[in-house]
Simulated scan of single mutants.
Amino acid sequence: MAQAFSALSPDTVMSAVESAGVYPAAEPFALNSYENRVLTFQDDERTRWIAKFYRPGRWENAAIVEEHGFLTELAKAGVPVNAPWRNAAGLSLFEHGGFRFALFPHCPGQAPELENPAHLFALGELLGQLHESSEKSAFSHRPRFDHQSDIKDAEARVLASARLNTQERRAYSSVIERTLKALSNVDWSVGPLIRTHGDCHLGNILGRDEHFTLVDFDDCMMAPAIQDIWMLLPTGEPQSWQVALDEVVEGYEQVRDFPRAQLALIEPLRAYRLIRYTAWLCSRWSDPAFPRAFPWFSDRGYWDQHIRQLEQQLLQLETPHWLA
């Protein structure tokens, strides 16, 4: 995979974009991106674009096309998302030189401020709009949330990486086993699976004032609605958590009922993300972009810290502080 991206030269990028019928006025500029390669450029008419080159081997074409169809559907419904550009034939996924790519309009703006009540209200309303449209159909080719198989897959990737010593491997496998046992006691039925953004953190929300757009649906999946909400809530003391939640709920309920029963899934979903995130770093470490972006991952003390973090999260699964 890393070798494939190393072949994505500026000339290849230019040729690929031109093959789709769009003509850059100058060499594209690379943006911070890890899973895929994302660049920005201006065309001859000074219109700004985003070119996204997909990581080879990660998604089947059908999954990418389904993501693009979802974005187009949302945009037509008036949900603020950054939908892909389509050519005269209606195509949004292109291939050139062995790389698959898509073009998007440039989306200006900054991430929201989670300390700003008006921003939290606006985000709640935006996610309410998203879920009001997304629940009307289902994905056929995108992933379905399955905590058991996903966490077992993550554990296998971590242990296969040979990054842990014998003691760390034992401790890691033990905490994963206990986490899976704890998650088996969770009532997941409170969260019916709908089409979600899947990775709704601050880096994937851009805008100004109280007007925001959701970008980068690369991880869209069938999951509980709360998957798109919990990362916007603080992890500090209960009072600040409740204040932020109240603003998000008020905005969300301008559109639809808030899934309050799914609040019980927040700490399970946090445990799921902690485990999957570390496995992602392990599986991508051969890509030169990752050691540059995440140098702390190679520190000798990382695994002790990660295992302690998972142990602490196990306590939260048993007694979530914000549900006390």
Rank of each mutant, 00 (worst) to 15 (best):
D228N: 06
V243P: 04
M221G: 03
I266A: 08
T235D: 10
D219F: 12
L269Q: 11
V249L: 12
A244V: 15
L232K: 04
Q227Y: 11
M222C: 01
Q239N: 03
P238V: 07
I226N: 07
R276N: 13
V248S: 12
R260V: 08
T235G: 08
V243C: 06
E250Q: 06
Y272V: 01
W230T: 10
A279E: 01
A264R: 11
A279N: 02
D228Q: 07
E253G: 02
Q254L: 04
A223K: 06
G236Q: 02
P259A: 07
L265R: 11
L269D: 07
I229E: 14
D218L: 06
W241R: 15
A279M: 01
T278N: 00
Y252W: 04
R256Q: 00
A279D: 02
A264T: 12
V249A: 14
I226P: 11
L232Q: 05
E250I: 05
M222L: 04
Q262W: 11
Q254C: 04
I275R: 00
L269T: 08
L245M: 15
A223Q: 05
R273N: 09
V249T: 14
L274G: 00
V248Q: 09
P268E: 10
I229P: 13
C220A: 12
G251D: 01
L265P: 12
I229C: 15
G236K: 01
A261D: 09
R276C: 11
D219C: 08
F258E: 11
P224M: 10
I226L: 10
Y252V: 03
Q227E: 14
M222W: 01
R276H: 10
E253H: 03
L274V: 00
S240R: 05
Y272D: 00
A223H: 07
R276T: 12
Y252E: 03
L233P: 12
R276E: 09
R270S: 12
Q239V: 05
P238H: 05
I229W: 14
L269G: 10
P224K: 08
L274A: 01
Y277E: 05
P259G: 07
Q254G: 02
L263W: 13
L233Y: 11
L245Y: 15
Q254E: 04
R273M: 09
I266W: 10
P238F: 06
L274D: 00
V243S: 06
Q262N: 10
M231G: 15
L233Q: 13
P224D: 11
R256Y: 01
I229L: 14
F217K: 02
Q239D: 04
P234W: 09
A261L: 10
E267W: 14
A264S: 12
T278G: 00
P238W: 04
E253A: 04
V255S: 00
A244F: 13
I266E: 07
L274K: 00
A223G: 05
A225W: 09
Q242M: 14
D228T: 09
L274E: 00
I226S: 08
Q262L: 09
I266Q: 08
Y252Q: 02
A225R: 12
A223Y: 05
F258K: 08
R260N: 06
A279V: 04
P259Q: 06
E267M: 12
A271S: 13
W230V: 08
Q262A: 10
V248A: 12
W241H: 15
E267R: 13
A271H: 06
L233T: 13
M221V: 04
L245C: 15
D219P: 06
A271T: 12
P268R: 10
E247A: 01
I275A: 00
M231N: 15
D218P: 09
E267T: 15
I226E: 09
L274I: 00
T278F: 01
